[in-house]
Write a protein that binds this DNA or RNA. Sequence first.
RNA 1: GGAGAGAUGUCCGAGUGGUCGAAGGAGCUUGACUCGAAAUCAAGUGUGCCCCGUUCGGGGUACCUAGGGUUCGAAUCCCUAUCUCUCCUCCA
Length: 425
Amino acid sequence: MFDIQLIIREKERVLAAMRKRNFADINLVDKALELHEKRRRLITEAETLRAEQNRRSKEMPQVTKNGPPEEKRALQEELKVLAEKVKSFQPLVRAIEEELAAVLLAIPNMLPDDAPEGGEDNAVFIKEWGKKPDFSFAPREHDDLCMRLFDFARGATLAGSRFAVLWGPLATLERALISFMLDIHTRERGYTEVLPPFLVNRATMTATGQLPKFEEDLFRTNDDLFLIPTAEVPLTNLHRGEILSEEMLPLAYCAYTPCFRREAGNYGKDTKGYIRQHQFNKIELVKFTRPEDSETELLKLLDDAEEILRRLGLPYRVVRLAAQDQGFSSAKTYDIEVWLPGQGRYREISSCSTFTDYQARRGDIRFKRKGAKATEFVHTLNGSGLAVGRTLIAILENYQRADGSVTIPPALRPYTGGWEKIEPT
RNA sequence: GGAGAGAUGUCCGAGUGGUCGAAGGAGCUUGACUCGAAAUCAAGUGUGCCCCGUUCGGGGUACCUAGGGUUCGAAUCCCUAUCUCUCCUCCA
């Protein structure tokens, strides 16, 4: 929910941010102002009448007890008319408020002034880590290795395109990665592990920003529940409608969940291999912070995600997304991109963002400072820590050997029953 | 799936048609006491919106799970939904 007050106070800045995002419906801002003004006028009028009704109504017990019956009847008649009038405002006000809410829900989050201009190609390089492996042979792509263990044909039989079955060592490797990542985040990085529902309702999807605008990206059930596209959704909604106390903050949660995405609009993109699936596993990190802490907490969260790649010895770089490439609800996003030698390029493996108070506003997630009277919205942050399937791909491609076998990174071996490699298939 | 009970403020909990934004308690804040803490005592302590004055208040309005309804008037009565609990049924 965009803050109408911000529009009133700083319309030009809001518009500038929307233009920077290359957001089409810029007229939403004027629409919001207009509706807000209309609503104010209506409310003022309706509440004046209502006050009159309440005032007169208070006379009723007195009149009933002591007054003559005619006086009571007269008062009743009068109040009936007033009540009708007051009630006639209800549908008008509600219609306007619904319209205004719809408009405010459709406006993307504000951007910080230093948000980089441009789109996908304008991401700003932040840093890189690790040494790209040197191969004495032409490195293969992940699905070219372990060919029999990635079973896209049977995935298609069972469900359709963009579904896969993993066999044997790959299934184990995926499971090992999940435990490995969760252990690091919970034991070393202070996150509380959560196992949330994988299906959520409309209100939950609306708070984090997937609804109402992006329904076509989601899988929906007959019961009007949605399969989560990321654990960000249930984790961020954990405190929806709550007032947290300042001492609780920052809160840090992590969760393993499968993620389900329609991938609408990605036809023909990454159709080969395990890169882009309708269902994939992800470890997600979510934080709730005071507004003044969100910047530093974002950097910490980013480092928590990077740590997984460092432990696994996978080379990566970090970029800051340009305005047009950023998510609708996000104010600032860092992507971690892992090196994939088979593809010969970096691919996104984690996206770490601050949503400032945008999701908190939509989900009514507030906190109260010690000693303060007023409540404030928290800031919410999240990032992948990491996308499991893509980590598996990165291991295969970076640790492949000439004979088609794959070395298991040492840090992971306690989780794979001590295996040191996956044999070629 | 069947039968019944319930949902009140940060928490616990009273309230069954008007004087209820809501008793009481806990918590929290401030003050007193104290070298300090604890204990004790006193005062204060929900949120959104609208209007007016605009350090900071004042007035109004709405909110007692949500949405409808009855009524001049609803936390209180009726209907629906959601959730929780108990019993039965079923189930990994």
